[in-house]
Design a protein around this nucleic acid. Sequence first.
DNA 1: AACAGGGACAACCGCAACTCA
DNA 2: GTGAGTTGCGGTTGTCCCTGT
Length: 282
Amino acid sequence: MGRSPCCEKAHTNKGAWTKEEDDRLIAYIRAHGEGCWRSLPKAAGLLRCGKSCRLRWINYLRPDLKRGNFTEEEDEVIIKLHSLLGNKWSLIAGRLPGRTDNEIKNYWNTHIRRKLLSRGIDPTTHRPITGGEQPPPPPQQEAKTISFNNNNNEGKMMRSCVISPSTSNSSGISKEEEKSSSPVGGGGEGGGERCPDLNLELRISPPYQSNGQQQPDHHQPYQSTVSLCFTCSLGIKSSKDCVCDNNHSSSGRSTSINIGGACDFLGLKGSSILDYRSLEMK
DNA sequence: AACAGGGACAACCGCAACTCA
DNA sequence: GTGAGTTGCGGTTGTCCCTGT
């Protein structure tokens, strides 16, 4: 069973687009604008599925597309953004005017991958390829500690930390579990090693309960305010405040927060960039 | 000249996220 | 709140073209 197909495949063309089809699509979008891709083919007199029309327009026919070779600067931007975002081609494309996600994806797979490999860099992790198959260190041993300092913020004591290339080991909050789908901060080593330009600041207020109680009863629901500020050398900067709930840990010492779910750095959805699910208050 | 192999890129497919009734 | 419909994304495939043999 399942979902019905997006179009009647028996009556749609597939494969390369003809000049006439391109002209029809361009003329229709010029007259009516983008939108409602499902009904567009019929309205434009095209025997194509809506998805195919959308793809053709976005990747090939849009007037603001920049054709031609990628510049050295664009290469470097793509590499840096990929180290930050992983295979988020649409986000990377968003930072490169005139380039499409498909174009960047193809370019990555055909050119940049090889370029990085020739430099001795793993294109997936952006870390140097050390000779032989050296297995990565076991991530579970890497209970990282992020340095925190207390400061007074508008009369409310906040804890703040900076996740930087050299994570200091003083006190405060240890990151006991780190899950991230992007290379940023993910994996076994520090995020800074892979992305030395990343500067992530995280502030967490002391837990409080809705009744205003400052010393929370850990058996009752309580909340913390989380403030995140993200910058990197590419000039990308974002910040976000959110309120996170505890998850009733049995010890009463840890609070599980899902920062990623509440933040939309760079237009990211969900936990694509940050998903520090568990922070242990010492 | 013919063929094989590989690179480049356009297009397709499946799935997840989102929207709206 | 739920489910169907729609859109967008990322991985993969197909095809064309160039180069070497």
